[in-house]
Amino acid sequence: MIKTKGLTKYFEKIKAVDDLNLEINEGEIFGLLGPNGAGKTTTVRMFNTLTLPTSGTAEINGLDVVKEATKVKWLIGVSPQEMNLDQELTAYENLRLHGLLYKMKEIEQRIDELLSWSGLAERRDSLLKTFSGGMRRRLLVARSIMHRPKVLFLDEPTVGLDPQARRQIWDIIRDLNRQGVTILLTTHYIEEAELLCHRVGILSHGKLIALGTPEELKARVGHFVVESIDDGTTNYRLFDSRKEAYNFAQQRTDDVLIRESNLEDVFIKLTGGRIEK
């Protein structure tokens, strides 16, 4: 559904995205992970036709995002990191303008549907200024799917939300995916990627340094972690089997913790953390 070849973006002299080769399948929830400034948002903006690549190509459903930008725009839904709903308009007005921009028919019906789907029916005529962070994020996602896109881009969809609001967004994402929407989400909350994504890619300094299912990535670095404290800093050692981890732990005289590895361990290991193996 999404395919890139050598996708690269420079801002002046700074390389934001470096030779990205990636393929995302139809119906997949794909997570793009990486520390702040790794190039996630720039990558998504290139898919969204908002930023022009310096070199390389990106295709969505076989359409080039530069040469066939207008056709691409009909296919995609975008929920940017900055909640860019119009603060001075009501929820209803925000959705109505979106429907008009996409020349939709039956706008009113779709608005009612989306407002009740996102649990905001009662706030239909309130100005966005008065909405909480979670409500804004739900409306933002509702707006991005209003024109029934085939591919949905969610840039940091849960940043700054409380645990309850975050779970609501997760349910919304799963629900959309069940309806057949291909989803690309960026996040630096790793448990989010682990819970939601079929596959993840890890970006670091603009380069894709790992790609696979969460299980595959964990297998690559080791299934078990021993946490120990040496000179006041926590060390994480990764082991392929429980036995190896146990043997290591037995040699220690102080307190250690043995646990299964998670994507966060993979992430820290691959992006240059202190994990030893």
Binding site: L50, T70, K73, N84, D86, H98, L101, Y102, K103
Partner: peptide
């Protein structure tokens, strides 16, 4: 500031 303009730029409006 509000990035609301991206909504137009990402839509099929020319």
């Amino acid at each position: 500031h509000f990035k609301t303009f991206d909504e137009y730029l990402v839509s099929p409006a020319t």
